[in-house]
């Protein structure tokens, strides 16, 4: 896929960094012209540093992180688990497979007010939002993988009179794992979105809560700083997801290059 052409890597990184620096300078200049609407990077950084010093930012990060992790873990357990069940049961797949697709198209944001009304704004309700956001890509990818276990390998297992558990250990799980991992990669991104849905619309806690209250105060320095922070975290999470996806399929690495 990648047609590497002529861009050499170190030069590319240098240009990227120059682009970032340019953006920062532009931001600083613009911020100095209109300090009310657009805080300068320096002031945004100071705002973040202040929140680190008084402990609000670490506490919020912890809150957000916990919600994200618990919701994601539930989605992985549910998605991979039910995915594997679906892959082995024709009956369940035939009857509930299409429901998965139907439910997947319901936007979770829109459900937030209903979840709030029915289940309140406790940790459980917020976790539910994160879970619902992340579970579908994981589930769907897992089923896709398990359903397309290569026929020859199933024959190999049968010729060697493999039992059911060795069949899972040697064929189904290793084959499905990379599919599940790419589901989990998408799930990580979706869980992050879900975390903000929960913090914005159920209960203003964590980073989402800090963003909302700063926005209500028109504190553009804090909002801008937090927004940049969120985007950095999101990019890191995406990188992590890609790493994970690769790490779990070492036998594929050669073929993807």
């Amino acid at each position: 896929m990648k047609h590497s052409g002529s861009d050499s890597r170190p030069r590319g990184v240098a240009v990227s960094l120059a682009g970032l620096a340019l953006g920062l300078i532009a931001w600083q200049v613009a911020g100095q012209r209109d300090p009310v609407l657009l805080a300068t990077p320096v002031r945004s950084f100071e705002a973040l540093a202040g929140m680190v010093a008084d402990g609000t930012l670490p506490a919020a990060l912890l809150d957000t992180g916990l919600l994200f992790l618990v919701g994601l873990a539930a989605a992985i357990a549910g998605g991979v688990g039910y995915g594997l069940v679906l892959s082995r049961s024709r009956v369940l797949r035939g009857s509930t497979g299409w429901l998965v697709f139907a439910l997947q198209s319901v936007p979770i944001v829109a459900l937030a007010p209903l979840i709030l009304a029915a289940f309140g704004f406790g940790f459980g309700a917020k976790t539910l939002v994160v879970f619902l956001s992340a579970v579908f890509p994981i589930l769907i990818n897992t089923v896709e993988g398990a359903r397309h276990a290569p026929k020859t390998l199933l024959e190999v297992a049968k010729v060697h009179r493999s039992g059911e558990w060795p069949l899972w250990r040697d064929v189904l799980i290793p084959h499905t794992l990379p599919y599940a991992m790419s589901g989990i990669r998408q799930g990580i991104a979706m869980a992050f979105v879900g975390t903000f849905i929960a913090e914005f619309f159920l209960q203003a806690t964590g980073i989402g809560g800090l963003l909302l209250s700063a926005s209500a105060r028109f504190d553009s320095a804090t909002v801008l700083g937090l927004t940049v922070l969120v985007s950095v975290i999101a990019a890191l999470l995406m990188g992590l997801g890609r790493r994970l996806e690769k790490a779990f399929a070492p036998w594929r690495q050669g073929s993807t290059e």
């Binding site: 390998l153 024959e155 190999v156 010729v159 064929v171 290793p174 036998w251």
Partner: peptide
């Protein structure tokens, strides 16, 4: 024992 046309090797082994 059986030998397969497309080898039938486990790519992850």
């Amino acid at each position: 024992g059986m030998v397969f046309q497309h080898f039938g090797l486990f790519p992850w082994k």
